Amino acid sequence: MENKYRATNTTVSLINYHFVFCPRYRRKIFLKSEVEKRFKELTEEVCKEIDINIVAMECDKDHVHLFLNTPPTFSPKDIMAKIKGVTSKKLREEFPHLQHLPSLWTRSYFVSTAGNVSSETIKRYVEQQKTRG
């Protein structure tokens, strides 16, 4: 069984967020598998840099699900700003068909804590998004 709790100095926390966000105009940017692959690599780099554990991550053609275990020092807004900012800039630099967009993501996102359902339930839900018809 994995340790879900974070211990930093004198703080022990269990903060899990489920995020869902979309590209501007619900563009189907993940139809090309190399965009999805690169998005996931960039997101992993950002999360590692700021000490966030990715519990589950899945992309559908026009949206992203992220289930993250975070330290108490970051708000959902801080997390989304960092992930969206880095991935938008890098993906638009690296993929010519995205370069014309002034920004890749909408300003909005959905966020929920894992308060009323287990982490395992949310992880299973995120992972099943690709297989849904």
Rank of each mutant, 00 (worst) to 15 (best):
45 E>W: 12
45 E>K: 15
45 E>L: 15
45 E>A: 14
46 V>A: 14
48 K>T: 14
48 K>D: 12
50 I>G: 02
51 D>Q: 11
52 I>G: 02
52 I>M: 03
52 I>S: 07
52 I>L: 07
52 I>V: 15
53 N>T: 14
54 I>Y: 01
55 V>C: 06
56 A>C: 09
59 C>F: 05
59 C>S: 14
60 D>C: 13
61 K>Q: 10
61 K>M: 11
62 D>I: 08
64 V>P: 03
65 H>Y: 08
67 F>I: 11
67 F>M: 15
68 L>T: 01
68 L>G: 01
68 L>V: 04
71 P>R: 00
72 P>F: 01
73 T>H: 06
74 F>W: 12
75 S>Q: 10
76 P>G: 02
80 M>W: 07
80 M>N: 06
82 K>P: 00
84 K>R: 12
85 G>N: 09
87 T>F: 10
90 K>I: 15
91 L>I: 07
91 L>D: 05
91 L>Q: 05
92 R>D: 08
93 E>C: 09
93 E>R: 13
94 E>W: 08
94 E>K: 07
94 E>T: 06
95 F>V: 05
97 H>A: 09
100 H>L: 12
100 H>T: 13
101 L>V: 08
101 L>W: 14
102 P>A: 06
103 S>K: 15
103 S>A: 13
103 S>H: 14
104 L>P: 05
105 W>C: 08
106 T>M: 10
107 R>N: 13
107 R>V: 04
112 S>K: 07
113 T>C: 01
113 T>V: 02
114 A>D: 03
114 A>V: 11
115 G>H: 01
115 G>N: 04
118 S>E: 06
119 S>C: 09
119 S>L: 12
120 E>V: 11
121 T>H: 08
123 K>P: 01
124 R>G: 03
125 Y>G: 02
125 Y>R: 06
126 V>A: 02
